[in-house]
């Protein structure tokens, strides 16, 4: 079953199109990474799915309903980011209790155990927490709510590495215990990659790719070696990225449509074949067309 369906989705702020012609579907009980550069439209998309913002055009269905202004969608969806606001009059324990009343699947045992593990105290106030601590507390709410659709927008902001690792472990453990659909946006693709089943790669408000992590891992590879040899090899190939490192040497990332024979021939030509990490691939794919930072600086 599809939990989220977008068809020709669009969002404008004034005359600026932030989301454009977006069509995709998210399968039930999967963990999908929402990946893109700053300003690509990740948060806007997640906020529309959460039902906070109304699309400007196109169709968006969450649990087969338009999420905006839908009580059904808001009871079954939770959106976690670092801007969550809670009234100053409530202490942390009271915030957990309030959330428990709203979300039908809330697991107070899990919330309490994480609360104690991360060293929170009942009478602390949300606004007094440090950036990392606040993210940690919000993450506890996101997990304990056990919403069928859980949206984490940059959930690890400010968390140190040890806490991030704990978070990944807790997320995975509770996902296995209580399967649900999770969308996770993060700049730390390398860290979240093992958690993901699929990646939705966004560029300039459009879906660039929606693939399984394994497919992307095989999508491209790097060629390293003599410039002329590589250039002639890549004449009819789709080049994703290239960088010259000397007058004769070049590194080129190409789409992987090579045959076994071509691979053998490449190696015989003295070309080094290198794997491209998912993180690098996504950076190359979302690079602006008009060159990189080096072109600006030189």
């Amino acid at each position: 079953m599809q939990i989220v369906k977008a068809d020709g989705l669009e969002k404008k702020f004034g005359s600026k199109k932030v989301i454009e012609q977006m069509s995709f579907e998210i399968k039930e009980e999967t963990i999908t990474g929402i990946i893109g550069r700053n300003g690509a439209g990740k948060t806007t998309l997640l906020k529309m799915i959460a039902g906070f913002w109304r699309p400007s055009a196109g169709e968006l269905l969450v649990f087969n309903e338009e999420p905006f202004d839908s009580l059904m969608a808001s009871a079954n969806t939770i959106y976690i980011d670092d801007q969550l606001y809670y009234p100053d009059t409530l202490n942390l324990k009271q915030i957990l209790q309030q959330n428990a009343q709203f979300y039908p699947n809330w697991n107070m045992d899990l919330a309490d155990r994480l609360f104690n593990y991360f060293g929170f105290e009942a009478n602390q106030r949300h606004y007094q927490l440090s950036k990392g601590k606040r993210s940690t507390f919000n993450m506890i709410i996101g997990l304990a709510a056990r919403c069928p659709l859980t949206l984490f927008d940059e959930p690890t902001t400010g968390m140190d590495e040890a806490v991030r690792k704990d978070f990944y472990q807790a997320l995975l453990h509770d996902y296995i215990a209580f399967p649900r659909t999770i969308l996770l946006s993060s700049h730390l693709l390398q860290e979240i990659e093992p958690l993901l089943e699929e990646v939705l790669l966004i560029k300039d408000g459009k879906v660039l790719m929606h693939e399984s992590v394994d497919t992307l891992k095989d999508y491209a590879f790097g060629l390293h070696g003599d410039r002329d040899t590589i250039t002639s090899w890549c004449a009819n190939k789709s080049i994703i990225y290239q960088k010259a490192y000397s007058s004769e040497g070049i590194y080129v990332v190409v789409q992987n449509d090579f045959t076994e024979r071509e691979f053998a021939q490449l190696q015989a030509d003295g070309i080094k074949l290198l794997p491209v990490s998912l993180n690098d691939l996504c950076i190359y794919l979302t690079n602006p067309k008009n060159g990189g930072i080096v072109d600006v600086l030189s």
């Binding site: 453990h173 093992p194 992590v213 394994d214």
Partner: peptide, 17 residues
Amino acid sequence: QYQLAEMFTINPATAAK
């Protein structure tokens, strides 16, 4: 697949593959 997923902190679908 679930034991492997927890052992290595990886998605259970990946472990199943």
